[in-house]
Design a protein around this nucleic acid. Structure first.
Length: 311
DNA sequence: AAACGCTGCAACCGCTTGCGG
DNA sequence: CCCGCAAGCGGTTGCAGCGTT
């Protein structure tokens, strides 16, 4: 499917017969072939050299957003979604900077994702996108949900591996992770004291991190001291089953002031002292296919209920 | 089956940044 | 320092495709 803008040519463009709109297969081939032979850069020259009646700008965009061989296609994984949320909270709409941390993904794709998925959900929740409320919701609700999703996926797959390897007589653990029946708090496998996710299909790996300690015991969430954030080696609670995540927010004076972030404010200020609850809708959502909606409508209703009841 | 509405995303626009002369 | 050009970046647009009525 190709989005095609209306062809509006200035007189000057008509004179030079510059083409606009969707790229043809022939143009793609010309561009790819030329870049294969001569490399990127000097886009205006490149456009002429390749025999394309396109602006250099247009060629650059087509190459970077579509033709470049290492571009990853398809839906964003939960890991990637989480990373986008993380990095956006850090840097705001610095799409190209965010894209640098998602190998194979373009700034355009990430920008589109943010606008079509994230901002849409904000609208449906009647929260102004990029408002503090929305950020609170993202950080304290949806990001943990994504983390859960990732953890559960990895937990399930590791059990599947165990299933195939272990002596089935010895194995007495359930074949699926424990799913709480009634609105559990954040569910983390014991091994998840510190998360490090590798990005599939890439040699690079990245840490998906968050400045909060999410306790599976106490329904509490607490921000880690800067000391710890600056030194990941300090992370990892050897005793309790805490998920400790690290990050350094707002180090570049970016869009969000997370310093004032108050977990309880997710309840929209009705109960100032209420603890954060990362509640899970009924059902085995963790086993759902990794469809790439940021969250589903059921999740949203739970969040909305929480908000309305002030929990 | 036709009309309509919604969504995803490719491509464009305009502004900013970087750099050489 | 200023100017002009090229490249980069973020915001916006508009259409194909799909689902719903």
């Amino acid at each position: 499917m190709l989005g095609v803008r209306k062809r509006i040519c200035s007189p000057r463009e008509e004179e030079s017969e510059l083409r606009r709109g969707p790229w043809t297969l022939e143009e793609d081939t010309l561009l790819t072939h030329y870049i294969t032979l001569h490399g990127e850069g000097r886009w205006n020259m490149l456009a002429r050299g390749a025999g394309l009646k396109r602006t250099g700008k247009s060629c650059r965009l087509r190459w970077l957003n579509y033709l470049k061989p290492d571009i990853k296609r398809g839906n964003l994984t939960p890991q990637e979604q989480l990373l986008i949320l993380e990095l956006h909270s850090k840097w705001g709409n610095r799409w190209s900077k965010i894209a640098q941390h998602l190998p194979g993904r373009t700034d355009n794709e990430i920008k589109n994702y943010w606008r079509t998925k994230v901002q849409k959900e904000a609208r449906q929740l009647n929260i102004e996108a990029n408002s503090k409320r929305f950020l609170d919701a993202v950080r304290s609700y949806w990001m943990p949900r994504l983390i859960q999703k990732i953890e559960q996926a990895s937990y399930s797959s590791s059990l599947t591996t165990l299933d195939s390897l272990a002596d089935r007589e010895v194995r007495s653990t359930p074949s699926h992770p424990p799913v709480h029946n009634s609105l559990p708090t954040l569910l983390c496998p014991p091994e998840s004291r510190f998360t490090h996710y590798s990005n599939p299909g890439s040699e690079n790996s990245f840490s998906v991190t968050s400045p909060y300690l999410l306790s599976t015991n106490s329904n509490t969430i607490s921000q880690q001291p800067d000391e710890i954030l600056e030194n990941p080696s300090l992370l990892g609670d050897p005793v309790c089953n805490n998920l400790i995540l690290s990050d350094t927010y707002n180090k570049e004076g970016s869009s969000y002031d997370m310093d004032g972030f108050n977990v309880a404010s997710v309840g929209m200020g009705t109960h100032d002292n209420s603890p954060l609850e990362c509640q899970v809708a009924e059902g085995n959502w963790v086993f759902d296919s990794m469809e790439d909606t940021l969250w589903n409508m059921d999740d949203m209703w739970v969040f909305r209920d929480l908000r309305e009841t002030g929990i």
